[in-house]
Design a protein around this nucleic acid. Structure first.
Lengths: 192, 192
DNA sequence: CAAAAACGGTGACAAATGTCCTCGTTTACG
DNA sequence: CGTAAACGAGGACATTTGTCACCGTTTTTG
């Protein structure tokens, strides 16, 4: 598990063996079965999490109990609730596993320690945040400017291969349409 | 104009007179008339911009020429296209003034210099980015989970007083609905 | 393995929204 | 100041989407 992370992070940043040792000494490994929750609404998100293997989903619920998918996190991706993590406030998100998943996590205290001792980590982290913001902006633009079908096509391009791992009603939820609407869109696309 | 910025930034971060001097020496002041463009689609966004007075709008256009408002930036707000600014790539955004506006701007080169010489500036900037990401996430959640009316109500709460400064069709554009739909929503709310 | 749950699709109908149009008022600007 | 543009509203109609109900299949799980 940590070895998966080690292999990945070495492709993203130039790290010394000492850096890797710091990561390893503070990492918490965790295995999740399908449907297990990594974070529950109302809890404080205490970790930055890296997905080594498997698939996580971040979602929010509305008053009437509807689930809305905010993010899919397949292997080799980071996930957390930045607000809750940073300010130690209750989170409004749930994070669960869509399949058997292995993660490595760090507490804020430990990760801040890593920031202090691995200068390049901050640079890497800033890049992740920047690209995260950019993608979120793009998603807003899609939401306000594109039709449901266009958003679906964009989604397929952005996350190729995801359809075989995620049930369609979650894709619909991510796109902000009902599963029936997504079903219709897919139906019309079969013909063309 | 710079004095507006100086007054504001002192409420946000603890700065020395020397820090202020660095800001002042590198700042570019600019006045914009209504409808003037600060950034045009296709250009490289070369500045971080602080709005001292007035009102900016950031929007994108789709293939068929429709404008979609991504952001409103009243006085005491920062704006830029982070992607274009950071990577010197052509921007897909337009930024224009909705009324007479005064801004101060810094080139990336100068602002990076400020980062190097004013340690707290990075902390402040990181906070802005974090809250920006948080708000953008919230907007995605609204877009995929709420009705047009709920999004409108949320908008009013989030930006009180904005309705008197921004034409309704731009609010509609920001919310991702047609101006007719927004008109209907407002009509039904008058009764209740 | 067998029961239960999850899943994907579809039809019928209602509700929401977009599009196109006109109209009167307000605002901008030469 | 006067003309033109921008603006907000509203009606009529078409389209999209949501909701509800149902069905057959696949997957999960005890």
């Amino acid at each position: 598990m940590f070895s998966d992370f080690e292999r990945y992070i070495k492709t993203q940043a130039v790290l010394t063996e000492e850096d890797i040792r710091l990561f390893r000494d503070t990492a918490i490994e965790k295995k999740l079965r399908r449907k297990d929750l990594l974070l529950q609404e109302g809890e404080i998100c205490r970790y930055k999490t890296f997905v080594c293997k498997g698939f996580l989903r971040t979602y929010r619920t509305t008053g009437n109990g509807n689930e809305h998918v905010m993010q899919f996190s397949p292997e080799n991706n980071w996930t957390t609730d930045p607000e809750s993590y940073e300010h130690h406030t209750p989170s409004c998100y749930n994070i669960d596993a869509l399949e058997y998943t292995e993660v490595v996590m760090w507490t804020k205290k430990d990760f801040d320690y890593l920031f202090d001792h691995i200068p390049l980590l901050k640079v890497y982290s800033d890049k992740l945040i920047a690209s995260n913001l950019s993608r979120t902006r793009q998603r807003v633009f899609s939401a306000i400017s594109a039709t449901a079908e266009e958003r679906y096509d964009e989604f397929i391009k952005m996350y190729p291969g995801i359809l075989t791992r995620v049930p369609l009603h979650m894709v619909a939820s991510f796109l902000g349409v009902s599963r029936e609407t997504l079903s219709r869109i897919r139906h019309t696309q079969v013909k063309s």
